[in-house]
Amino acid sequence: MFLKEYISDVYGAVKSMAIGMKRTLYYFTHHQEIITQQYPDNRDTLVLPERFRGEVVMAHDEKNEHRCTGCTACELACPNGTIKIITKFDISPEGKKKKAIDKFIYHLELCTMCNLCIEACPTNAIHMAQTFEHSVFDRAQLTKVLNKPGSKLQEGVE
């Protein structure tokens, strides 16, 4: 009786191992089902989905104009104090004072990519870029000014 149990145990064990090994061997011989991505060799062909949150950027059109009015809604929405907006007053041709952004400072090192600033912006001035290789040697490089030098507000954006 004992011997019979013993043999059936051994048989069961060997069988279960063989089933598992069959699977492994199947993938060993079927290379087309292997899905490993060869990063970073595939950098050129790597496509990230358009919603991927890599970093906050500000879009500028060809006339070097952006859509940011300096309302600071994004600064208030950010949970980490990542955004700091420094405003200035532009004098319009009619002599009126108009608020505009001087610097849109963005601390990438503090950003958690939560998308709350993008949601908060009433004029869609900022969006998320798909870049993700953010490592630098000096962390001061992570503090960015998002509005390009000399840029101004687009016509008609209030």
Binding site: L48, P49, R51, F52, T112, M113, N115
Partner: peptide
């Protein structure tokens, strides 16, 4: 994770649920 990345914008820390619904429509 790819599905999440496409719809929510991130793979692990999605922050997709907001009070009142979800942040974006599905992809």
């Amino acid at each position: 994770n790819d599905i999440m990345e496409e719809t929510c914008g991130a793979r692990l820390t999605m922050n997709y649920m907001v009070p009142g619904g979800v942040m974006m429509d599905i992809h």
